[in-house]
Design a protein around this nucleic acid. Structure first.
Lengths: 114, 114
DNA sequence: TCTCCATTTCGTTATCTGGCGAAATATACA
DNA sequence: TGTATATTTCGCCAGATAACGAAATGGAGA
């Protein structure tokens, strides 16, 4: 019960929803996400840990970066189910479209170390 | 965007999840729900208005009672999608099973006016 | 080793949320 | 009309949440 409500709590924040939809395209490091959402590093890091705690995303160390990606689908199919729900809920959403455009155009090496 | 996060906010409370799962079985009035959740009338009423505001449930006046039921499925299929997600997330959940048992055994006319 | 930089953790603050009881509203029935 | 009952609304309080900046952590490379 607590686990289920925590899942929906994780999904109940606009910035975390934007993060999930961005990660559909490709894995991203924290500073790339900061660049899109325009929030403090610490804030984005916390959002990511909330999403990780409910198994919606995973992290992978890559040198000094940490790449975040959508979780692998497992036997519960949780992530597939959630993402297909989000896809239909966000059809035509302006914020989501702009974010994904920004992600496509961004280059990690230009954004970070600014 | 706001609409989507509000949907998940509505789903992020354990008592509201319990209400949705109870309503799968049959429409219920506020005092029946109060009887199961053991919360104040005013608290349950507020939970119901939050669920109604995101179109997950509807209300129908019936004399001095107000019956709440799951929303009708519409072209967006929101309610069907959400409820099938909840069904799989709550498989084997003790609280949910007990609630639904209590609902089956309860008689509105004995519970209300106590 | 030392420095740089990405990330996380910590401490603080403003706002949101869920809970309650009391008062207001609405309907049935004597 | 008056009373009883179901529900909603209001005002309040305690705890949760999202935001920030500063400090701590950890890896890369000089």
């Amino acid at each position: 019960m607590r686990q289920v409500s925590n899942l929906y709590k994780a999904l109940s924040d606009q910035n975390r929803l934007r993060i999930l939809m961005m990660l559909k395209d490709k894995p991203m490091c924290v500073c790339e996400i900061v660049n899109v959402l325009q929030l403090a590093n610490s804030t984005v890091s916390k959002h990511l840990s909330i999403l990780r705690n409910v198994d919606l995303i995973m992290d992978e160390k890559d040198g000094r970066w940490v790449n975040y990606r959508l979780a692998q689908s497992d036997e519960s199919d949780l992530i597939d189910n959630v993402m297909s729900q989000l896809n239909s809920l966000f059809i035509g959403d302006e914020t989501i479209n702009k974010d994904r455009q920004a992600v496509r155009e961004a280059d990690r090496h230009q954004i970070c170390a600014s």
